[in-house]
Amino acid sequence: MDDKKLVKELIAGNKKAFEEFYDKYYLCLYRSAYFLVGNKMDAEDILQDTFITAWNHIGELRSVNSLKTWLYRIMIRKAYRSGERKSKEVPDEYVQDKTDTTMLERGVSSDFTQDISQKNELQQALQMLDIKHREVIVLFYYEEMSISEIAKTLGCFEGTVKSRLSTARRKLRIILQSNDDTFNNLKMEVV
């Protein structure tokens, strides 16, 4: 079912349409929530709250064309409100495999995804970024949104998104390089 028909059915209160709506968007929203908050339990709570809010407010959607953007905006607001970040977990294999494929397709070096320790290192580095920089990385690389889609989702200018993305990349590079330097120094001391 296309989004236009789906929204009409949701407004009418059709529960079958809600199941289809959920199936269509839950994985990408969950993945983004997970990378924003850093653990499965909080991501699941955010996902649930996002869909409840969407169900309750679907009639307020201004344009069917902006359904995806509207959902991400709700999810990001829920992530902001989720409070303190709890212990970090390694994402389940399906999310991690999708992440690897997506990052390679978007031009991120395969060095990031060669082995599980590097995957964990990237996840930890991502969690070291503040939420504004983390969200642009997640939306751009993991959700494959364009700069203009991210700007609409976050309610800011495209220039702001570009600036945050550039800063986030630079910070990630510094974090990852400092981790490599620390690891290399430890190896040198052991030898």
Rank of each mutant, 00 (worst) to 15 (best):
E84F: 03
K40I: 07
Y34I: 02
K132E: 15
M128W: 06
H57A: 05
Q114G: 05
M41R: 15
R62C: 01
D130S: 09
A54M: 08
D92L: 02
S110C: 02
G83E: 09
R73M: 01
S82K: 14
Y94K: 12
F35S: 03
M41I: 11
E89K: 06
S63M: 04
T102P: 00
E135Y: 01
S109M: 04
R81C: 04
F35V: 03
T113N: 11
R85M: 09
S82R: 14
S66Y: 09
H133Q: 11
N65K: 13
I131G: 02
A79R: 06
T99H: 07
R62E: 15
H57M: 04
D130R: 08
E143R: 08
D45W: 05
R73I: 00
D115Y: 12
L126N: 02
I131E: 13
Q118C: 01
V138L: 04
L71P: 02
Q124L: 08
K98R: 12
I76R: 06
N56C: 03
L67C: 05
D45A: 08
R134I: 01
D100A: 11
E144G: 11
G59H: 11
S110H: 10
V64C: 09
D92C: 05
F51I: 13
T102E: 07
K78I: 02
I76Y: 15
E60F: 01
R73Q: 13
E143D: 02
T53M: 07
L122C: 04
